[in-house]
Amino acid sequence: MPTTKTPTTKTLREGSSRKRAAILAAARELFLADGFDRSSVDAIAARAEVSKRTVYDYFGDKQTLLQAVVDDVGQSLIATIGRILDDTLTDPAESADLEDVLVTFSTRIATDMLGSAEHATLRRLVRAQTGHPPDQSENPMADTPDEALAERFAAFAAAGRLDVPDPRLAADQFIALTFGVALNRYGSANAAEDPRVQPLIVEGVRTFLRAYQAT
């Protein structure tokens, strides 16, 4: 059973960004390969080519280091979501077909983010951290992706393309109707690998637009 020890609260060194990155990378590799409990700070330090004292100075203890690794992977996924938003939901005036735009966005999220090795890594790390598969309350990305999508929906509403009195609610409902359905039904949303996913996304987008497309 994974440890549930509370992470350290002591003051930690900021230190060298190169060393910090090396420790995070080493910890991530060992936590995934050997498991959290079997990964020693000595082994992490050796792989990162730093001293054991440096690991403790930068992260305090192994539990805090695991949280830092989870946060690091979560931030990488948030950056991926940002790139997908910038590639697909940009200028509302240039988005001629909302259905096509939203299907493209959803498919990219399902494949490039939810179907990525990074996302699989995040789930494994959170399981190591909590002892069970992650649920929404333990999502290290919290509400960041939902809020980012809500901002784009607000922009489309301001341009007269959508009618969304509550952009955040619209974002939550959009996610639930599209790749959220695939995750709940199949446990995966990778449209590139599972042909069942794309029809769910298309129908979800159409349902969303029936409720929110401006007339």
Score class of each variant (00 low, 15 high):
60 G>A: 06
17 S>V: 11
139 N>T: 02
55 V>M: 04
161 R>V: 03
35 G>C: 09
72 D>Y: 10
132 H>T: 02
201 I>P: 08
48 A>H: 03
92 P>K: 01
59 F>G: 10
150 A>F: 04
5 K>C: 06
163 D>L: 02
112 D>S: 12
129 Q>M: 09
107 T>A: 15
88 T>A: 12
199 P>H: 06
87 D>Y: 08
205 V>F: 00
91 D>N: 05
35 G>A: 09
201 I>K: 03
126 V>W: 07
110 A>G: 15
4 T>C: 08
103 V>D: 01
131 G>M: 06
184 N>K: 08
95 S>V: 03
210 R>L: 05
2 P>G: 11
189 A>G: 01
100 D>Q: 12
207 T>P: 02
70 V>L: 07
189 A>I: 04
26 A>F: 02
110 A>I: 01
113 M>K: 05
135 D>A: 13
100 D>N: 15
194 D>R: 00
89 L>D: 04
92 P>W: 09
120 A>K: 14
72 D>A: 10
210 R>H: 08
67 Q>H: 10
37 D>A: 13
38 R>H: 12
116 S>R: 04
136 Q>K: 10
152 R>N: 00
37 D>C: 06
178 T>N: 02
75 Q>R: 15
128 A>S: 11
212 Y>T: 05
201 I>Q: 03
75 Q>W: 12
44 I>D: 02
213 Q>P: 06
192 A>T: 04
58 Y>T: 06
77 L>Y: 04
107 T>Y: 12
133 P>C: 08
155 A>Q: 05
68 A>N: 06
72 D>L: 00
169 L>E: 13
60 G>F: 08
80 T>Y: 03
37 D>R: 08
202 V>R: 00
1 M>Y: 13
14 E>K: 14
9 T>H: 09
125 L>A: 08
131 G>I: 03
191 A>M: 01
66 L>T: 04
125 L>C: 11
65 L>D: 15
104 T>E: 12
89 L>Q: 05
40 S>Y: 11
61 D>E: 08
211 A>E: 10
215 T>G: 15
169 L>I: 07
127 R>F: 11
130 T>H: 14
199 P>S: 03
192 A>R: 07
211 A>W: 03
180 G>W: 01
107 T>W: 01
105 F>Q: 04
171 A>C: 09
186 Y>T: 00
36 F>I: 00
164 V>Y: 00
84 I>E: 07
116 S>D: 10
172 D>L: 00
13 R>D: 13
159 A>Q: 03
8 T>M: 07
146 D>K: 14
7 P>S: 14
69 V>E: 03
24 L>S: 05
